[in-house]
């Protein structure tokens, strides 16, 4: 009796599992392409916003390299290299501000080889809606205030929120979020400024395979 019940239940459950898993895998195979496309489009959209087409003529998305750099993030981050007529024209990197009000803030920072900041975008954050979420382009223009700025030295005092005596406005009511973003952009910019030549020259491991794998976690 026990054996019979075990056999029956085991086989049935196994059967259901196989069918379910098969279905899921099937759908995954079918949608794989579309999902990849979506992610590409998303990243590209952000990239194109801060590195306008006039500044590059290569395929930015496929110029991506994976960079392991503790100064930027604990994990390897993608670096995008823009060329205009074969000449290096722009450099974008994903930076992480670890000290946001509620968790990490993922940013995309782009500079010209000259060191001037092209632009910054927020890729992902969990800041308080209505307060900290003003770092989103859709909510506020604040994030665009980085464009055109330069970093003079590693401890350039102007690179801070106004409250701390810097040149970046903090939005009303929140100090922590902008402070974190400014800090992260500052260190990313510094890194890019220091290593721009090198970054254009070294070959980096391709990032797409790894990135897509990540998105399925």
């Amino acid at each position: 009796m026990t054996l019979n019940s075990m056999q029956k239940n085991g086989l049935l459950l196994g059967l259901f599992a196989l069918v379910s898993t098969g279905l899921v895998l099937g759908v995954e195979a079918l949608t794989k392409e579309a999902i990849g496309e979506q992610q590409r489009a998303q990243t590209l959209a952000s990239l194109n916003e801060i590195i306008p087409p006039t500044l590059h003529d290569n395929d930015l998305y496929h110029s991506c390299g994976l960079l392991s750099e503790p100064a930027l993030s604990e994990q390897p981050v993608p670096v995008y290299r823009g060329y205009l007529a074969g000449e290096p024209s722009a450099l974008a990197v994903e930076a992480v501000a670890p000290n946001g009000y509620s968790g990490k803030i993922r940013l995309l920072v782009a500079i010209k080889p000259s060191g001037e900041v092209l632009g910054v975008r927020t890729l992902q954050h969990q800041e308080t809606p209505g307060l900290g979420d003003k770092i989103e382009k859709q909510k506020s223009d604040w994030i665009t205030s980085f464009a055109g700025k330069r970093l003079r030295s590693q401890d350039d005092e102007r690179w801070a929120v106004q409250r701390d005596g810097g040149m970046f406005d903090q939005f009303t009511g929140a100090t922590i979020t902008p402070r974190a973003v400014v800090g992260a952009v500052k260190s990313a910019t510094w890194y890019l400024q220091q290593n721009s030549t090198q970054l254009f020259q070294t070959s980096l491991p391709n990032c797409h395979s790894a990135l897509e794998g990540e998105s399925h976690e």
Partner: peptide
């Protein structure tokens, strides 16, 4: 049968959810 009802139900639901998740990922990113 009674004994494996819940696991089977969960599996059915999980399948549907995963499929919908994949579809959303693909078409309403």
């Amino acid at each position: 049968p009674q004994e494996i009802r819940i696991p089977v139900f969960v599996m059915v639901i999980a399948t549907f959810v995963t499929i919908i998740q994949l579809l959303m990922n693909a078409y309403v990113y």
